[in-house]
Structures are given as C-alpha cells and as structure tokens.
Computed example of a mutant assay.
Amino acid sequence: MSNSNTIAPPIEGLHRGDLIAQVRGVAGDASAWFTTHWLAIAVAIAIGVGIFGLLLLLRGWAIRLCKRGEGVATWYSIIGRALAKTGTFFMIMTSARLVIGYADAPPLIHATIVFLFTIAAVFQAAIWAREIIFGAIEHRTQADPGHDHGLASALGIIRLLVTIVLFAISVVLVLSNLGVNVTGLVAGLGVGGIAIGLAAQGVFADLFAALAIIFDRPFRLGDSISYDKGSGAGTVEAIGLKSTRVRGGNGEERIIANRKLLDFEILNTTRRARNRFKFDFHLGYGIDPDLVRSLPGLLKEAVESEGYVLVHGGLNGFSDAGLSYDLEFESVEIDFPAEARDRVAAAVLERFHANHIDFAYPTSVNLIAGDVEKIPTGTAKAD
C-alpha cells in the first residue's frame, strides 16, 4: 500500500506534465505561425469568408427554388431541396479547406482541418443523396392520387432503409479515412444482412412487390382487374405492404399477397384504350346478291350513325344456317355506355327493315324425288 501511494503521484504528474507540454508546444507553434504569416492568414480568412458567403447565397437560392416548386416534385425543386439541406458546418469546413494551403498552416492544424472537412463532406454527401432519392421517389409517384396508408407506409420504409444504408456507408468511409481497419465491420454487416434477409425473405418479397406496384403501377385504387387467366376479378380497394385487397363481383373481399398477384398476368380493364363488341348473325341463301354487295356499307352506316367505329362488318362464310356474318365495332374513347349494343342493334334493324332483309332461322327441309318446289329463301335466326 505504501509503495503504491508513493509511486502513483509521480506517474500522474508525468502524464499531466506531458499533456501540458504538448498544449504549450501547439500554442507556441500557433503563436509563431500567426506572428510570421499574419498577412497570409488575413488574406486566407478574407477569401474563406467570401467563399462562405457564396455558399450561403447558393443555399438561399436553393431554398427559394424549393418554395417556388413547393408541392410539385419537379427535378428543379428536387435539386433545390437537396441544396437547401447544405449544413453550415460543411460550408465553414469547405471554406477553410480551400484556403488552408495559402496560409502555410502547421501540420497539426492542417491535418485537423482536413479531417473535419472529410467528416463534413461525407455526411453532407449522404444528406444530398438521401434528398435526391426521396425526391425521385416522390416524382415517380406524384401522378398516382390513389395512394392509401399502405403505400404511405411503404414509402416511409423506403426512406428509413435509404437513410440507414447511406449513413452506414458514411460511417464506414469516415472510419476508413481515420485509418481504422473496416474489413471486419463490413464483413459483419454483410453476414448480418444475409441472415436477416433469409429469415424474412417472404416478408421482403411482398414488400418489394409492393414497391414494384408503386413504381411500375400495373393498377391503382379503384381499377377493375382480372388475374390468374381470368379466374379472379374485381376492383382494387387497398394496396398494402404485404397484400392487395380486391372486391369481387359478388361482393366478397379477396386478399392476395403482392408477390403472388404480380406473378399472374393482370388484365386492367379500367385502362382500356377502347371498348369493343361483336354481333354474329345469319342471312338466308335466298337473299338478293345486290343486297349482299351493299350490306357492308349498310353495317358501317349503322355503326357510325351511333358514333362508333366499325372494325369489321361483312361475310364470314357459308354455314348450315345460311350466310354467316359478323359485326364488330368499338368506341372512339374509353367510355362505352351500357346501351351501346342496343343502339347499334336498333340502327342495324332499321336498315334491314328498310331494305327487306330478314335474318335466317335454322330450318330442316325434306326433299322428295321429283319435287320442283324451291327451297325456302330463309327467314332464319339471330344469335
């Protein structure tokens, strides 16, 4: 006990003395540097203040650009929003780093400024990258007014993941610049990420499918879709992180995993460029050949009189029931009223009645040898 009490004070005094000596040495070097290079230091400070002022003006311009494009995710506002996040510490260290070489600073001061500038630059770059990525996501999704809480949560998760990844990279870069061996840290992070990914691969698969729905937009809320080769159909009511809810035609709610839903071929009937219908009918073989020649014109006139476009209207061939015809027409725009088929059918019937054209009905005729009666011209059927 007595030996330890007698030895401790000299060791403590030695460490404290070394520290005081180092501080005095740095202070002496700084004093000598100021005394010898005061003019160069003054010029460097003036230039640094000017650079800092320019950076402040640039940040102010970026903030005004953000306000001018507020609420609109244009690329101008995205870049402006990123520049507006420029930190004051980064601007100070940038100014100091640009002028430190002109002042012939001592090695310790020069190394300190370079070190602080490296830290500020790395984290500032991460902040800029994060804002640009967030802005790009907003720019991509701003045209979709049907975002619900599920998609909002998905976007929140994207922001969290992007922030974690960017700042983790920044920490690794800073440690690497400090001379720390980060190989083990990077390997550990990689192994941990693989383990988490394998444990929750189903959840991540559905999450990434939800992100695919956000960016690729195969459907939106309120769209009518059919999937799984038409075995499932309904209206999209909600798009969540893991599943999508579709309201079926009978009123039932179908909950489908996002990953599984995107594996199907999806038919989005809401996004039709046009709508199309087709009628099939037969005319008797006793029809006047002149009417056969004029029939395509009559069908086209009937369709266009109701404001629709004729795709095909004419003879398909000969059949047991008579001359086989079809009439196919489509809408000019997406909207196609429910009574469209009735109106076109009425227009066709008007022209058939005016020209004494009758539909064919299936008939059976028994012929007796020597019978000279004509086969009925056909008064047949409408499909």
Rank of each mutant, 00 (worst) to 15 (best):
G197V: 14
W38D: 06
A105C: 04
A111R: 14
H356Y: 04
R247F: 02
A233H: 10
A120I: 07
S319W: 05
I255Q: 06
T88N: 00
V172E: 13
R64F: 07
L39V: 07
A346H: 10
H15D: 01
D342Y: 10
V165W: 09
I239K: 08
L98P: 02
R81I: 00
R220W: 10
Y361R: 11
W38K: 03
D206Y: 11
R259M: 12
T141L: 13
I214Q: 07
G80D: 05
F34M: 14
P362R: 12
L367P: 00
Y227I: 01
L291G: 02
D371Q: 07
L58W: 10
L166K: 10
L173H: 10
L189I: 10
G184E: 04
G87R: 15
L151Y: 12
F336K: 05
I51N: 01
L175Y: 12
V236H: 07
Y102E: 04
P296V: 13
A238R: 14
F279S: 05
F89D: 01
A210K: 07
F167L: 00
R130K: 07
L315C: 01
I109H: 05
A40Y: 06
M1G: 15
D358A: 11
L56K: 01
H139N: 09
H15L: 04
G146R: 04
H37F: 14
S364N: 07
T94M: 01
G28K: 05
F264M: 08
A40Q: 14
L241D: 02
A136G: 03
H353Y: 06
T244Q: 02
S324Y: 15
S4M: 15
A360C: 06
I100A: 11
T35F: 10
S224W: 15
R245Q: 09
A62R: 01
G284D: 06
N258V: 01
A360P: 03
A347L: 06
M91V: 09
D320G: 09
N258Q: 04
V172L: 12
I357Q: 06
